[in-house]
Design a protein around this nucleic acid. Structure first.
Lengths: 139, 139
DNA sequence: TCTCTTTTGGTACTTTAGTATGAACAAATT
DNA sequence: AATTTGTTCATACTAAAGTACCAAAAGAGA
């Protein structure tokens, strides 16, 4: 938001500068009005392109990286369960997850079972699917 | 590409129209040159925004939906193997895949085993992971 | 025609995954 | 203090998943 204000402020300043430039050129008479208008058109065209590129980049980043924390709570997933879900989505086995989280495989099995119920999935692959659709997983 | 040419052509036409308008306004003297320039600036600014929005939308769609056919060949995945991979990524079991593709479960197991080797994965969940990273799967 | 790849399918086996159930313990809530 | 919730772990079991090997049939290409 602050950036948008700054950009618009500098746009107005640029516009005023162009006014002065056009007046000067007109009075001196060595530059035709058509060229001035063309330059202004081109400059503002590219300003529009540039500003839009910045905002669209932000949009892409937001959509792809942000995780919907609300839906995690909505599903009733606990912190640990979500951690396990992330590891599952990385393609790790229960034993591997147990090692990375420093708990036993039994614990992971319990978490996965609860995960499947809460995500309404029969298999871990289905859980991954649903989690990605619900925008619960990163990337 | 064709659209880009069309857009630029209409841009030039618009520019010429504005030239004529500015000449008329100047000779009649009832509109100041500043206002004309301001209008042109604003119009071309929004033209820039509009064009960039169109192209950025295309970019988003391309990045998310297009599948890298080259990498599939590179990995040596056959048509059927790729079909199975897609079903696996949807969270289906071997039996379910067998039913949707009208073959036996043994066949699916063979395909999956070959898939895992070609994708350098130990589990189907890992295969899904790698496939998504390689941009082989849709969405 | 012969060869190679793909697709299909089987058997037998091992390994993961997932279910059911019970239980201990800590932390937060009522 | 009593209850609920989350995390931990175990046992015993069933169900998938995956491996290893083999083999037949179809299609494409040399």
């Amino acid at each position: 938001m602050k950036r948008t204000v700054l950009i618009f402020a500098s746009l107005i300043v640029a516009l005023l500068c162009l006014f002065q430039l056009s007046k000067y050129s007109y009075s001196s008479g060595d530059t035709s009005i058509e060229i001035i208008i063309a330059v202004i058109a081109i400059v503002f065209f590219f300003i529009g392109v540039y500003i839009n590129q910045r905002s669209s980049k932000k949009r892409i980043t937001r959509d792809n990286e942000e995780v919907d924390q609300g839906k995690i709570e909505e599903l009733g997933l606990s912190k640990r369960e979500y951690e396990v879900l992330v590891q599952v989505s990385k393609g790790l086995s229960n034993k591997e997850i147990a090692n990375t989280l420093f708990v036993s495989e039994s614990t992971i099995k319990t978490h996965v079972s609860n995960l499947l119920i809460k995500l309404d999935a029969k298999r871990r692959t289905q859980a991954i699917r649903r989690a990605k659709i619900l925008r619960i997983l990163p990337e």
